[in-house]
Design a protein around this nucleic acid. Structure first.
Lengths: 158, 158
DNA sequence: ATATGAAGTGTTACACAATAACATTGATTA
DNA sequence: TAATCAATGTTATTGTGTAACACTTCATAT
């Protein structure tokens, strides 16, 4: 099931961020990968945004905040790391990044992106992946990675 | 069902292209939209490519061929028109365009993209769309447009 | 036929997205 | 502590897409 969404005023999003960062640390140490200060800061910025955030937006926020400013390659490297680790997903239809709620286990997700407010919900839909794999198999095609982005209107906006 | 793929040597792809162009004309006149010379030429270039083709690649091919050279806005406008009309789909994960086999009726598709040879198969999967809509509805989300891109290995490459 | 407005295309310049290549710093480990 | 590799800094460039305005072509009504 999906956790409360950032725009959901009924929850403390700061706590949400804090949990995500702590969880990320746990995940990384368990894997022997390093969540450096920069990477953690970028992850924090991604989580702070209430909608998918672009790389240049992350960069701008780094400059504004108390962090050391960074150039595009630095930001992209941090984001790539986070995506590799499954801590963050990239939405290719908007070139934007969003924090992952279930970074522990590898998974492909399905995203519901509101075309009005950009609020984005991540769904875990194993049954659909099964079904897609079956369809693909009929064409003798084997799926490695699935990118599913659905746009429409969220509960608030419709 | 899916038509023969461009890389399938058992079929005459030129015929394929010719049919697609004729069909496009039919569709457009039926709708009262105009498939101009430029738009038709761009559509032809998209179909000629044996894999999804980028906007700048289309532009380069226009310059090379006997067509009048064109600037980016011109090419993007033509491509946008073709996408609007459903004659062409855009793959957002690769910023590339591919001809649609079933332009007559509005539909969202699912694409199987080979990560080795970029061969791309378009699947029509109404059952999965149903299922996705049902999942979305549980979050009070209504889907307008679905973008499903699956990468993996095609029959040839695996 | 021809004026008129809308749709389409041309052109220039620019904004946004991403990476190549190389220098430097920081963290392990022999 | 020297050597090594991972991470970050830096500069420059490539790739993707659009804003804004000029010009042309097409459809239609008069």
């Amino acid at each position: 099931m999906t956790k409360a969404h950032p725009t959901d005023t009924s929850h403390d999003h700061n706590l949400c961020i804090k949990e995500a960062l702590e969880n990320a640390q746990k995940v990384c140490t368990a894997r022997g990968s390093r969540l450096t200060a920069l990477r953690e800061r970028v992850l924090e910025l991604v989580w702070q945004s209430h909608r998918p955030i672009g790389a240049y937006e992350v960069m701008a926020n780094l400059k504004q905040g108390n962090s050391k400013p960074a150039q595009p390659p630095t930001v992209y490297r941090a984001l790539s790391f986070l995506v590799e680790q499954g801590l963050v997903h990239k939405l290719s239809s908007s070139n934007a990044y969003i924090g992952c709620h279930i970074p522990d286990k590898a998974h492909d997700s399905c995203f519901l992106v509101c075309s009005n407010c950009q609020t984005t919900i991540e769904l875990d839909i194993p049954d659909i992946k099964q079904s897609l794999a079956a369809h693909a198999e009929q064409c003798h095609f084997s799926i490695n990675y699935s990118n599913i982005e659905l746009s429409g209107l969220c509960a608030e906006c419709r």
